[in-house]
């Protein structure tokens, strides 16, 4: 599983890191860890704009976002 740890970074860095992961692994599910609501919202927007579904899970130190490509 491809995992992006964007905890400790403020926007727009989590979006930049997630973009790199999506570009580097087209068609693969990606897990993104963020520690702010702003990053959660922005990464969700990015993923949806690129046709991924987003599942958000609240974890101890922030949020765990599961991005899954459409149809998988």
């Amino acid at each position: 599983m491809i995992e992006v740890d964007a905890r400790g970074f403020s926007c727009p860095i989590p979006v930049v890191k997630t973009t790199q992961a999506l570009d580097g692994h087209p068609g693969k599910p990606v897990i993104v860890l963020v520690d702010s609501e702003v990053a959660r919202e922005n990464v969700s927007r990015l993923a949806r704009s690129r046709g991924y579904s987003v599942k958000v899970e609240q974890v101890l130190d922030g949020y765990r976002l599961q991005l899954a490509p459409a149809g998988k």
Binding site: S10, C11, P12, V15, T19, S36, E37, V38, E41, N42, V43, S44, R45, L46, A47, S49
Partner: peptide, 11 residues
């Protein structure tokens, strides 16, 4: 905005 490049201030 659609790509998630929204500043924290907007939220």
């Amino acid at each position: 905005a659609r790509m998630g490049v929204v500043p924290g201030g907007a939220f």
